[in-house]
């Protein structure tokens, strides 16, 4: 492909905050799964139903004859997940050691790591929202009317793995990044705070918003899964559209554009 000029496409603050988010989310996910292992089920409402059933997900281990089986129950339907969920490496634990920090069971350590990176994430997101809101960068992520008209074409181009390297965000890119920065991450932070008995006293309206501490915990978990989905698509798009150019852009700021079409 003919090469166009290098353009300065990512401001320093965006590059720094991007990598703070990336590192923080890595640790938050794996320490979060460590915390989840202390009570590996998700519920709807204020409390956990011990005398009644309000669970939508339960991961456990059951002795079946000689064998210890991992059983995952989703919305009342049971799956045998031995080897991955419930039982892994012959040990009864909901999420396997490879996906938790630390690898062994330690709720206290998981919490310490989780809250450390939660502060990093909140700090970086707040800084980015304020600064990019003031300097107008944030507007680049909000789809315009023209963008929305170009949406079918952008979807068709992505489906044919045809990527435009203009140094500007395409509409699908805008929608993906905006939903992470303006929806998923704030939702993660607010549902996380809703689980804090201290913060509940400061902002009881959050409990009303999310319909209870356990529902907030469930939304926290589901949003984590959505962020993993975003990460998978993000990586796939970078690999397909040119990983070197993308990494140069998010690390140094400089992005190689396609040659401008000749009129």
């Amino acid at each position: 492909m003919p090469q166009g000029p290098l353009v300065y496409s990512q401001k320093l603050l965006t590059r720094i905050t991007h990598w703070v988010w990336a590192v923080s989310l890595f640790f938050l996910m794996l320490s979060g799964l460590q915390i989840f292992n202390a009570h590996p089920s998700l519920h709807i409402g204020q409390e956990v139903g011990f005398a009644y059933d309000n669970a939508i997900l339960q991961i456990g281990a059951q002795q079946k004859g000689e064998a210890l089986r991992g059983v995952t129950r989703v919305l009342g339907v049971e799956f045998d997940t031995t080897g991955v969920l419930g039982v892994s490496n012959g040990e009864a634990r909901a999420i396997p050691a490879a996906l938790t920090i630390p690898s062994y069971q330690s709720l206290a350590t998981g919490r310490v790591i989780h809250f450390f990176f939660a502060w990093a994430l909140v700090g970086a997101l707040t800084l980015w929202l304020v600064v990019s809101g003031l300097n107008g960068h944030m507007r680049q992520l909000i789809p315009t009317l023209a963008d929305l008209k170009a949406l079918p074409q952008d979807i068709a181009d992505h489906a044919r793995l045809l990527f435009h390297h203009t140094g500007e965000y395409g509409v699908l890119q805008k929608l993906a990044y905006a939903s992470v920065l303006f929806v998923a991450l704030p939702l993660m932070i607010l549902t996380g705070l809703s689980m804090s008995p201290g913060f509940n006293a400061a902002a009881p309206w959050l409990l009303d918003l999310f319909q209870g501490r356990q529902t907030a915990r469930t939304i926290h978990f589901l949003t984590m899964l959505a962020l993993i989905g975003f990460f998978a698509v993000h990586m796939a798009m970078i690999l397909l559209a040119g990983p070197f150019n993308a990494l140069r852009s998010i690390t140094t700021g400089w992005y190689r554009t396609d040659e401008a079409p000749h009129d």
Binding site: Q46, V48, R213
Partner: peptide, 12 residues
């Protein structure tokens, strides 16, 4: 009140 265990569960 709602009792919140560090493990993640709650009970009123």
């Amino acid at each position: 009140t709602r009792h919140d265990c560090v493990e993640g569960w709650s009970c009123i």
